[in-house]
Computed example of a mutant assay.
Amino acid sequence: METEESFPFYKTAFVLVVLAIIWFFRETIIYNSYKKYFAWISNKITENVKEGLKDEKTRLFQVLHDYKDQQEKNLTILEVGSGAAPNLSFYPANTKVVCLEPNQHNDSYANENIKKEGNSISVDFVHGYAEALPFENETFDIVVCTLVLCSVEDMKKCLQEIKRVLRQGGKYVFLEHVGYENKKSWAWTLQCVMNPLHRVLFDGCETHRDTETYIMAAGFSDFSVNRFTHKPFPSWIRPCISGFATK
């Protein structure tokens, strides 16, 4: 009888010890593994969509070349959420770029892309978050954000930080997937249905954010936006916006 009562106790104790070990090492066991997975899958996605977005990015990043000509100097650019650094080929020559990325597992993929480009751009990597940019006020001529605001925890704070680190007259250049405009359409409903799963699989990425409204409310002096549909994307993240805003 005593043996029968003691067995469940030891069994329960063993389970609790295992759970405690998993909890103690959760950063390396779960979180770190997930970040590695997301860096890998986001790099694969970037490779697949890079060509499809080439025309739109070429048009969009012409703003950087025009601004460089106006300023008659080499630019200092901050790219927020740079990932595998797929935008470098669109930047003007002799640009100094600071790539801010929270996931350190993207560094190796970004370095591979830098070697492929082989241009005259200078690149530095900084690990940090968009809501708390580790830079002084008015540090950059340009801030670039592509497919990032869908995932940040606080979009309003992120935009405040972007505006803070921009020099007066500087440009915020963006490209984001957003929610459908018609909130009564089947497409909007699909976005809502897919959102929970999409957040889990893609590091908090939301399918239906009203990003344009947030950018317009951020207090920039000038705002230009182009709404387009990127058909290679799944239908629940197909509507996109791109454009720029001036501090």
Rank of each mutant, 00 (worst) to 15 (best):
Y34D: 11
Y34R: 12
K35N: 04
K35E: 10
K36N: 07
Y37Q: 00
F38V: 13
F38G: 03
W40F: 12
I41V: 15
S42L: 09
S42D: 10
N43L: 06
K44I: 12
I45K: 11
I45E: 14
I45S: 12
E47Q: 15
E47F: 06
K50V: 08
K50G: 09
E51H: 12
E51K: 14
E51F: 02
G52S: 13
G52P: 08
K54M: 09
D55A: 14
E56R: 07
K57V: 04
T58D: 03
T58E: 11
L60F: 04
L60H: 02
L60W: 03
F61Y: 13
Q62R: 07
Q62M: 03
Q62A: 01
V63M: 07
V63L: 11
L64Y: 06
L64R: 03
H65F: 00
D66V: 06
D66I: 01
Y67N: 01
Y67G: 00
K68Q: 15
K68H: 01
Q70W: 06
E72N: 13
K73W: 04
N74D: 15
N74W: 05
N74V: 01
L75A: 08
L75Y: 06
I77P: 02
I77C: 10
I77V: 15
L78H: 07
E79G: 04
E79L: 07
V80E: 04
V80L: 03
G81E: 04
S82T: 14
G83P: 08
G83N: 07
G83A: 08
G83Q: 10
A85M: 12
P86I: 05
N87W: 08
N87G: 09
N87F: 06
N87Q: 08
L88D: 04
F90P: 02
F90L: 01
F90K: 00
Y91P: 05
P92N: 13
A93E: 15
V97H: 03
V98A: 04
C99R: 02
L100G: 01
L100D: 07
L100Y: 05
E101D: 05
P102A: 03
N103P: 07
N103E: 05
Q104T: 11
Q104Y: 14
H105R: 11
H105W: 15
H105I: 00
N106G: 03
S108A: 12
S108I: 13
Y109H: 15
Y109T: 09
N111E: 14
E112P: 05
E112F: 08
E112I: 10
I114C: 01
I114Y: 05
K115C: 11
K116V: 13
K116P: 02
E117M: 13
G118E: 09
N119K: 14
S120W: 11
S120E: 14
I121T: 13
V123S: 09
V123G: 02
D124T: 06
H127T: 04
G128W: 09
A130P: 00
E131N: 03
E131V: 02
A132T: 02
L133T: 03
P134Y: 08
P134D: 04
F135H: 01
F135Q: 01
E136M: 11
